[in-house]
């Protein structure tokens, strides 16, 4: 069997004796190394690309986390920094973006829909289905009540100005397209999202 500098190789203690290292006279190096690393545990970590959630500049961020995402073990975000390879921010972040880790870990962070019933003084967790139905119901009621088909001069305007729509600053093209279509189709004028820029 030949040995090569170009092919993929897998490192092992057993391979050492038959290697260039072994041939130079360090035949026992592999076993020594294996014994040396035995007490250590390998830790799994990830660096994930994402976009900063704060403003419409959408700076690229690298999110460092520890832990095995493929198993049931909990992984933990440990650090967030600007993505040096991102063409928009080239690794930089503004003070808000640089503090985005606190946003991730904030005890006040909203992780599921919450609902405050009329007359109640506290929010309660609700299901997504409930939240969607409720929002749709309220939007429909409001639109039925306030939709303006024609203005004073009888010109068709089809507008609905009593409701506004706020998308996110980090939308992709596709999500921006859908947001725009939905809002404009219902007649909403007060629309703000990434696709405006």
């Amino acid at each position: 069997m030949g040995i090569t500098r170009r092919q993929f190789m897998r490192v092992s203690a057993a391979g050492l004796a038959a290697s260039t290292v072994g041939a130079l006279g360090f035949g026992d190096a592999g076993d020594a190394l294996a014994a040396g690393v035995r007490p250590f545990k390998l830790e799994r970590a990830t660096e994930t690309r994402n976009a900063c959630p704060y403003c419409a500049v959408s700076c690229g961020v690298l999110i460092y986390s520890l832990g095995d995402r493929s198993k049931n073990a909990r992984s933990e975000v440990i650090h967030v920094e600007g993505d040096p390879d991102h063409p928009v921010n080239r690794g930089t972040l503004c003070p808000r973006g640089a503090a985005v880790l606190d946003f991730v870990r904030s005890p006040n962070r909203l992780k599921y829909p919450m609902h405050r019933k009329a007359g109640s003084d506290k929010f309660e967790r609700v299901s997504w289905d409930f939240a969607m139905d409720r929002i749709a119901r309220l939007m429909k009621d409001d639109r039925d009540k306030n939709f303006v088909a024609k203005n004073r001069d009888g010109v068709t305007v089809n507008r609905w100005v009593s409701t506004g729509f706020f998308g996110t600053s980090s939308q992709s093209n596709e999500a921006g397209y859908l947001t725009y279509k939905l809002a404009r189709a219902t007649g909403i004028l007060g629309l703000e999202n990434q696709a405006r820029i």
């Binding site: 040995i3 090569t4 897998r10 092992s12 391979g15 290697s19 260039t20």
Partner: peptide, 9 residues
């Protein structure tokens, strides 16, 4: 400097 230490995968 360590070719061959790695087994051919």
């Amino acid at each position: 400097f360590v070719i061959g230490m790695m087994e051919r995968s």
